[in-house]
Design a protein around this nucleic acid. Sequence first.
DNA 1: AACGATATCAACCGCCTCGTA
DNA 2: GTACGAGGCGGTTGATATCGT
Length: 227
Amino acid sequence: MENSTDVRKGAWTKEEDALLRDCVHKYGEGKWHLVPLRAGLKRCRKSCRLRWLNYLRPNINRGFFTKDEIDLIVRLHKLLGNRWSLIAGRLPRRTANDVKNLWNSHILKRPLERGEKSITKSNIVRPQPQTFSNSRPPVWSTQLTRSSSIMKPTSHDPTRLVAEANDGTNSVENPNMERRSLLLEEDQGECMRWWEHLFKMTENADQDRLCSGLSFDADMVWNLGNP
DNA sequence: AACGATATCAACCGCCTCGTA
DNA sequence: GTACGAGGCGGTTGATATCGT
């Protein structure tokens, strides 16, 4: 654990951003415990990682969420629950933090403003573990649980590989890219089948909406952010 | 113009998982 | 088997901006 007396907190300065950016460009992502020392920053490893992933990383899209993106978020959330990193993985150049903030500040409030039942911890419909009939032991687990690798993407998770390939990250600096490209090629087909299966389930899951009394409308949320 | 209420979002915290010694 | 450290995640907070009166 970092020595709390030496660690700076709060908003990042431009100078700190520059130091962190230089450090990551020089040494690459990862080894976050070494970053404060390498960069000369009085920040904890977690703070450095978060700053990089949510703000400094190249190609991050910080613009308005499009209607399609909101629709996708709503559909994925219905299936996956608050698995922000996984949801963000399907939205190129979006961060989990941004998706989470969007959900908490916009989407979560819609039903209340329309006089519908609000979302609470007790009435949220949590995703149930799903077992797929696919007999091939995939790279990821067939069980959708927090501990499974599909819920927690790893370097072997093809869904993440596809997302990274789509947004062009990890292309140059990552020494494992070649190996991962092979994995990507091998698993992309299965990955797409998995997601197709998932989206078919969203259509069936509309019943859940009716049962829970909760509903979201991508058009409405999008219009709110884009008057 | 002033002030309180509300919204937004960057950042922190604590917990979990995984790899390794 | 287990203890430990690093990476990663979701929940939450707090500062700031914006809006309404």
